[in-house]
């Protein structure tokens, strides 16, 4: 259960990608940064013996969510080059503090003495596989997930309805 150099490299890469996501001037670049962050997290999840969650993260978070973001951005009016230049000064002022805050947080965490004598909670009956957990232990939660997905579908239909559709013409 030791941290390998590969893990450390991936964690650093993940943080840099997250920082780039927030600092990127263009929304499209921010979306690409988010996808890279998600892809690196996928590798980390896979290395932590959770292949099913890794597949979900890769296909849904890296793929689908990026597509949703790119679609939303393409449907809105992009800023012109002149507007971007005008905004960059104000943006620079707002976001210059983030690397400083990150470094300060890192230093604070390094010097913070967090007690390591706590124990993680254990299940009375440890689950063996994901299928068993999903269908036998958490079967009621599945109904919740189905309801949430239906809310999403109906929400999209309601939100994307145009005036002409409402009139029935």
């Amino acid at each position: 259960m030791n941290v390998t150099n590969t893990d450390m490299l991936l964690l650093v890469l993940m943080t840099i990608a997250a920082l780039w996501t927030v600092m990127a001037r263009s929304l499209l670049k921010a979306t690409i940064g988010l996808a890279i962050t998600s892809a690196v997290i996928t590798i980390l999840i896979f290395r932590l013996n959770s292949p099913l969650a890794a597949v979900f993260e890769l296909s849904v978070c890296t793929g689908l969510i990026t597509v949703i973001f790119v679609s939303t951005i393409s449907l809105t009016k992009p800023l012109t080059h002149k507007e971007i230049l005008e905004m960059s000064k104000a943006r620079h002022k707002r976001y210059i503090y983030l690397p400083i805050i990150l470094v300060a947080t890192g230093i604070a965490l390094l010097f913070l003495k967090i007690p390591n004598d706590f124990t993680l909670p254990r299940l009375a009956t440890p689950a063996t596989n994901v299928r068993n957990v999903m269908w036998n232990i958490r079967h009621l939660d599945l109904f919740g997930q189905i309801i949430i997905m239906m809310i999403g579908a109906f929400g999209v239909v309601t939100l994307f309805i145009t005036k002409d559709d409402k009139d029935g013409s």
């Binding site: 099913l52 969650a53 978070c61 689950a127 063996t128 957990v133 939660d141």
Partner: peptide, 19 residues
């Protein structure tokens, strides 16, 4: 040592995230 439960929670989180 309970990756199965953690993975099931993560799948739920991802579903909620997409919606």
């Amino acid at each position: 040592n309970n990756t199965a439960l953690a993975q099931s929670f993560v799948i739920t989180i991802i579903v909620i995230e997409v919606v």
